[in-house]
């Protein structure tokens, strides 16, 4: 095994793993045996700038936020791809141009769907 071509890689991998986990383990041991913990309800409570926190930290976000995600994706991803598309437009082959248009149309479809759903109207 020691003559295998990947043996040095294994050694390096184990060394890298030890380099990362060693200090973590030492810190854990230090905390377990030497650190002076004085836990109390105030210390263990949720940190809220000195105020007593209200409610739970694990709040649920409304699933209705998916609309924002879709709109964000439409404009953000489209902007990222439209600029190189426009720059290289004159040199593109017909196939590349078609592929790009299909991509843009897919995203515009999301916009059209949101528009039809009335998301863009401020109520």
């Amino acid at each position: 095994m020691t003559s295998g071509p990947y043996f040095s890689l294994v050694v390096l991998f184990v060394a890298a793993l030890g380099f990362g986990l060693g200090p973590l383990g030492l810190a854990w041991l230090w905390a377990k045996y030497f650190a002076p913990p004085k836990p109390n309800p105030t210390k263990n409570s949720i940190y809220e700038c000195g105020l007593v926190s209200r409610g739970d930290a694990w709040v649920q976000f409304r699933s209705a936020y998916y609309l924002y995600a879709i709109i964000f994706l439409v404009f953000d991803v489209e902007a990222v791809f439209l600029l190189p598309f426009a720059v290289a437009f004159s040199g593109l082959s017909a196939a590349a141009c078609t592929a790009m248009l299909v991509f843009v149309l897919l995203l515009v479809e999301g916009l059209a769907w949101a528009w039809a759903k009335g998301v863009l109207t401020w109520s």
């Binding site: 650190a35 109390n40 105030t42 210390k43 409570s45 940190y47 700038c49 000195g50 105020l51």
Partner: peptide, 10 residues
């Protein structure tokens, strides 16, 4: 202030 002091680690 007292609560923040309580929340500091030893």
């Amino acid at each position: 202030v007292v609560r923040l002091y309580n929340q500091m680690a030893e």
